[in-house]
Simulated assay, not measured.
Amino acid sequence: MGWTYLSREALARAKAQMDEESMGVRDEIGFLTIHQRYADRFFPGTSVLHTRARYIIFVPWLFEDLAGLTGPAAVRALRERERELAGRLKDVGESQVIGGRVFPKPSSQPPSTVYWNALAVWGILRPRLDGRTISRAQAHRLLKSAGAATDDDGQPLLSFDPPFVPLPERPDNWRGGHITLRLATAEAAFLRERLAQLRRNGGHELSLLARLVRTEAAAPPGMWAAEARAIAGPDQAALVRAQQAASLAGVGRAVYDALLERILETDDKRETSTRHRDHLAAIVEEHGAVAAKLDVDALEADTGALPLKLRAVLTATKDWIASKSWNPAPLFGVYAAAEARKGPRARLALTPNGRARRLEWSSDEHGLAGPLHYRWEQVSTLLNDLADAE
């Protein structure tokens, strides 16, 4: 099982699940839709599982080192090389090592999985003739084909485009010795050249990530900082709406938790704390004013049409904030309707299934709700890695 590459569809499902888990809670109401769409607009190719920028170069180097292998042999060899790399990085004290926590076991989400989409989006992995992203198995086959048949001078008899664009030179310590996650100057220049060309949603406008990379500076102090807004160009208004949407989703997630806590107490007759109900008041105090400014029509113009039940939640939550009632009970119907997409897994449902799902939920163990983050932590690390190259 560990030696089988996932299909594109399976990887897409896994990506969605990992994004949900990164939010600290399951995405019961659908706020993750907003998170993913704005994150992909501003920072194409990024993922919540990205750690350090140098992995985007490590992965194609690993593949090229294994040229000649295909099928299960290539999968096994890559798995072992990625495991060894995790150990070498841990040995020098790196703290953001993919697979570092489980070493010496191999990671279930190795760098070649985590960064494959970025390799394609950032123009390092060549696309197929039909424009689709090649799979890792296809990359192994292309690398084998590229060196398979040569003439007397060692030149290939047939022309094959290798899967990766020309890469920076490998350092002397690539095959052995101490290696770190700090980019070399040439590696940073290689990445900057590609990231600086990234367009928003495949269109003509530069993405916010490209604009940030072009400054050649470290990351701004926050996604909403004046420095980020100043260079956002045509995305300035969308960036303001993204902040408003992030705050509204944070309030909405807190509303969901407060409603659930209330049902446990009033309908299920279970003793529970008021932790999430207290937090709702705090998050409305901190984020309510910004959240209430969101224009939902303009949000959809930025991100595309939202599911109708999610749109209803956003609108109702905005109205609830404006009412200053602080009692989330009037929102129960619209939130329960949105969560109904989860079927028997819905916790707000006043059914035997809903009650069974609520038995699995603990108020004290469940994380407190917060705003959407749009992968800013990962983007900040990427920008700082580029700025700190040596």
Results as ranks from 00 to 15, higher is better:
residue 262 R to Y: 06
residue 264 L to E: 08
residue 264 L to F: 01
residue 269 K to Q: 13
residue 283 I to K: 03
residue 278 D to Y: 00
residue 272 T to L: 03
residue 271 E to H: 11
residue 273 S to H: 06
residue 267 D to P: 00
residue 275 R to Y: 02
residue 279 H to G: 06
residue 284 V to A: 03
residue 264 L to I: 00
residue 267 D to N: 09
residue 270 R to H: 11
residue 281 A to S: 14
residue 259 L to A: 09
residue 272 T to C: 10
residue 274 T to M: 07
residue 262 R to E: 14
residue 257 D to W: 02
residue 276 H to D: 07
residue 268 D to I: 03
residue 255 V to E: 02
residue 274 T to K: 08
residue 275 R to D: 06
residue 285 E to M: 06
residue 256 Y to V: 05
residue 275 R to F: 04
residue 283 I to T: 15
residue 256 Y to M: 05
residue 277 R to N: 11
residue 270 R to S: 12
residue 282 A to E: 13
residue 270 R to G: 08
residue 269 K to S: 14
residue 266 T to I: 07
residue 277 R to I: 05
residue 260 L to S: 11
residue 282 A to T: 07
residue 273 S to E: 09
residue 255 V to A: 07
residue 263 I to C: 11
residue 276 H to A: 10
residue 262 R to G: 10
residue 270 R to D: 11
residue 263 I to E: 14
residue 285 E to R: 12
residue 269 K to G: 07
residue 256 Y to I: 05
residue 285 E to I: 00
residue 268 D to T: 06
residue 268 D to M: 12
residue 284 V to H: 01
residue 255 V to P: 04
residue 262 R to A: 15
residue 272 T to M: 06
residue 274 T to P: 00
residue 269 K to T: 09
residue 257 D to R: 08
residue 258 A to S: 15
residue 276 H to C: 08
residue 284 V to S: 02
residue 267 D to C: 04
residue 262 R to H: 12
residue 256 Y to G: 05
residue 275 R to K: 15
residue 284 V to K: 01
residue 280 L to R: 01
residue 261 E to T: 05
residue 281 A to F: 02
residue 262 R to Q: 15
residue 254 A to L: 01
residue 255 V to H: 02
residue 273 S to L: 07
residue 279 H to V: 05
residue 284 V to T: 11
residue 266 T to D: 13
residue 281 A to K: 13
residue 268 D to R: 07
residue 274 T to G: 12
residue 276 H to E: 07
residue 261 E to H: 04
residue 272 T to G: 10
residue 254 A to M: 03
residue 276 H to M: 08
residue 271 E to M: 10
residue 284 V to Y: 00
residue 280 L to K: 02
residue 264 L to A: 11
residue 255 V to G: 06
residue 264 L to D: 12
residue 283 I to P: 02
residue 283 I to H: 02
residue 254 A to T: 04
residue 267 D to T: 12
residue 279 H to W: 13
residue 274 T to I: 01
residue 268 D to C: 10
residue 273 S to Q: 07
residue 254 A to S: 15
residue 283 I to N: 03
residue 275 R to P: 03
residue 275 R to Q: 14
residue 265 E to S: 15
residue 269 K to F: 10
residue 260 L to D: 10
residue 264 L to M: 13
residue 275 R to H: 08
residue 258 A to C: 10
residue 256 Y to D: 13
residue 257 D to E: 14
residue 259 L to V: 05
residue 285 E to H: 09
residue 272 T to R: 14
residue 273 S to K: 08
residue 270 R to W: 09
residue 279 H to Y: 08
residue 269 K to A: 15
residue 265 E to Q: 13
residue 265 E to K: 13
residue 271 E to V: 12
residue 263 I to D: 14
residue 275 R to C: 05
residue 267 D to I: 07
